[in-house]
């Protein structure tokens, strides 16, 4: 097997704040393999967005980063922007949650796309425009020439997100990072965008890292899943394995607490008591322990390391027995 193009090792991201130091990301090891569709799922504050931003060197200036982020052997942490720009937008690019704030409202769509082409490829405006039209077609935006002359506000939310995806893919990156790319969209448009990601991945071989709070979205598209909580990866496994045999109590809790559209409703949903911990005052042991129904004495004292419990299946949990105690109540 060839080495994964993106390798993250021991990554921690902290911020000084009025309430003490905030640990947004803690000691994360993560690989992104060539051409894979990796889903990262977590709630707000789990550190999933911070992780993506760090890969592109977009963390806030006051963020303190430790560890290593290597792309094809090259260390990205600490690289200056000129060197980073050889990688970001080019080899690794990103799609954000809200296309309206990521696009410049004063510039026509055509200008914004061709600019990306011109930054990454030596080309004339005419060639860049031809490339832009090709990209619009590949993300299924009809009437390309007319769209290029329009401003972002003239497009629907789904169209704007397609434009963002076109811009992110124009330099044919090896890895595409997507931060909640369909969360702001209606459900039918979300389904279209997820289908587009799958289609583009199949056609171009670009690896996709999709960050979301929605396990349903993960189940639809991901090959492999990392579950984050309070800045750490709690569990990591191939998608079918993770859903069929979750090994971390938090994964089980997430899975059991979501109502399903394809099953009769229970009287009560299984629910996780309590709230996620304050990132400025994390517990000494496992961050999920205060809410965990499988909690052992050791959980409060020692944070469990992420260990491989079977091939490709990693978990950070002291509990070794089976899960299955958490269930909704039947009607």
């Amino acid at each position: 097997m060839t080495a994964a193009p993106l390798q993250i090792r021991g990554l921690s991201i902290g911020y000084p704040s009025d309430h003490g130091r905030i640990q947004a990301v803690r000691d994360i090891d993560l690989d992104v393999a060539a051409g894979e569709f990796l889903g990262i799922v977590g709630e707000s504050g789990s550190g999933k967005t911070q992780l993506l931003l760090a890969v592109l060197g977009l963390s806030a200036p006051r963020a303190e980063l430790r560890g290593s982020i290597r792309y094809r052997g090259q260390e990205l942490l600490g690289l200056d922007s000129a060197a980073l720009n050889q990688v970001r937008g080019n080899r690794i690019s990103m799609v954000f949650q809200d296309p309206m704030t990521a696009l410049n409202p004063y510039l026509r769509i055509g200008r914004q796309i061709t600019e990306v082409v011109r930054v990454h490829r030596r080309s004339t405006w005419r060639d860049a425009e031809r490339r832009a039209l090709d990209m619009l077609e590949s993300v299924h935006i009809p009437e390309g020439p007319r769209r290029l002359r329009q401003y972002p506000h003239e497009l629907s939310g789904g169209m704007r997100q397609r434009v963002m995806i076109a811009m992110a893919l124009i330099a044919e990156p090896e890895i595409l990072l997507a931060d909640e790319p369909s969360t702001a969209l209606d459900v039918t448009v979300q389904a279209q965008i997820l289908k587009l990601f799958q289609e583009l991945r199949a056609r171009t071989g670009t690896a996709i890292v999709l960050v979301t709070h929605d396990l349903g979205v993960i189940a639809e598209v991901a090959d492999r899943v990392a579950v984050m909580y309070a800045g750490r990866i709690m569990e990591q496994a191939p998608v079918h394995e993770l859903f069929a045999h979750p090994r971390h109590p938090y994964t089980e809790a997430l899975q059991q607490s979501i109502p399903r559209i394809d099953a009769p409703r229970p009287l009560h949903l299984a629910s996780i008591g309590g709230v996620p911990p304050n990132p400025a005052a994390l517990p000494a042991g496992c961050a999920f322990a205060p809410r965990c129904i499988y909690r052992l004495p050791i959980c409060d004292a020692v944070a469990p390391p992420l260990i491989q419990s079977s091939p490709g299946h990693w978990k950070a949990c002291h509990h070794d027995g089976p899960l299955g105690r958490l269930r909704g109540e039947a009607a």
Partner: peptide, 19 residues
């Protein structure tokens, strides 16, 4: 059909095109 199902087996069994 467009609503995500948190189960990869059931989710991927639906092969109808989105609206």
């Amino acid at each position: 059909r467009a609503a995500p199902i948190p189960d990869p087996v059931a989710a991927r069994a639906r092969r109808s095109a989105p609206l």
